[in-house]
């Protein structure tokens, strides 16, 4: 019987879409190969438009509900664990490695699910100002985050490149190259987890085709680079970013509370006290 092979597409604005260019590239995995979308500059712009809408919706959702949506994501992955393991094995992992990778990813999601309704209590505080004022510093999500995933075929690595901004209310455009197949598969669980459309978008492609546009796009508020890239490329990205004082995070921390700080803006509000 002939094998029916899944077509993997980008995931933008809550929908599975092909690249508008019609182009794909071949992912040669250790034990299989797939044609996946070759994201174009226009696809990037469309993803940013969706992410802006996604950001508004996602940041309006209460922390309590965010916790539950993130937790549901872990439930979804748990339910599809075998299919992730199979895919990771196609990519070259041993079954044990694959299992461990998926389990670690789930553990991480649960950890961040539990952080979604607490981080403001850790990163924010009252300030004891000298005077009769109520003064509080708390944080807002920075906005639309573009995240470049590493080339590791690993669900844990993918999660580590998106979960921190997502937890604090940013919308994310996740871009993968050689590891795209895991990301595109992961989009299915995002789709089943009550995330508002546009809050998390998954793209596959070659970063060198789009990095100029990404770094010049004024509506991307932060670029998070989770893989080693050539210094000339990093330099160009940072130069372009300076035109709109865009934030660039190279190899972001994945350690505890410091992992979310880059994705936050601190806002301090003053009000006089009196009778």
């Amino acid at each position: 019987m002939i094998e029916i092979k899944k077509t993997y597409k980008n995931y933008v604005g809550g929908k599975y879409v092909r690249s508008e260019s019609g182009k794909t590239f071949t992912l040669n995995l250790k034990n299989d190969s797939f044609e996946v979308p070759l994201t174009s500059k226009k696809d990037i712009r469309d993803a940013v438009t969706s992410s802006k809408v996604g950001f508004e919706k996602w940041s309006e959702i209460s922390p309590y509900t965010k916790t539950q949506i993130l937790y549901r994501l872990s439930e979804m992955i748990e339910g599809n664990k075998d299919s992730y393991v199979d895919l990771l094995v196609l990519c070259g992992s041993t079954k044990n490695q694959a299992k461990k990778d998926v389990e670690t990813a789930i553990e991480n999601i649960v950890w961040y699910a539990g952080l979604a309704d607490k981080w403001e209590q850790i990163s924010g505080n009252l300030n004891p100002v000298n005077g009769e004022y109520f003064n509080i510093s708390h944080q807002n999500p920075i906005g639309v985050v573009f995240s470049l995933n590493s080339n590791d075929n690993s669900l844990t690595s993918l999660l580590n490149s998106i979960i921190q901004p997502l937890t604090v209310g940013c919308s994310v455009i996740s871009f993968s190259e050689e590891s795209s197949i895991i990301a595109l598969k992961f989009a299915e669980d995002i789709n089943n987890s009550d995330f508002p459309p546009g809050s998390l978008n998954i793209l596959s492609g070659q970063f060198e085709n789009v990095f100029e546009d990404v770094s010049k796009h004024v509506e991307i508020n932060l670029i998070s680079i989770c893989k080693e890239i050539p210094n000339e490329m990093l330099t160009k990205i940072q130069e372009n970013a300076s035109n709109s004082v865009k934030r660039i995070v190279n190899m972001p921390s994945i350690d505890g509370i410091s992992s979310i700080l880059s994705f936050l803006e601190t806002k301090t509000v003053w009000h006089p006290k009196g009778t």
């Binding site: 709109s244 803006e265 301090t268």
Partner: peptide, 29 residues
């Protein structure tokens, strides 16, 4: 809803070393 690092409500231009100051967007980071 204001995209600003400091919001003064019923006051303005108050400063304190314990109170963080700095901007959103092109006002810096």
């Amino acid at each position: 809803r204001l995209q600003a690092g400091v919001v003064w409500a019923n006051t303005f231009n108050k400063f304190d070393p314990s109170s963080p100051f700095g901007g959103y967007k092109e006002s810096g980071f």
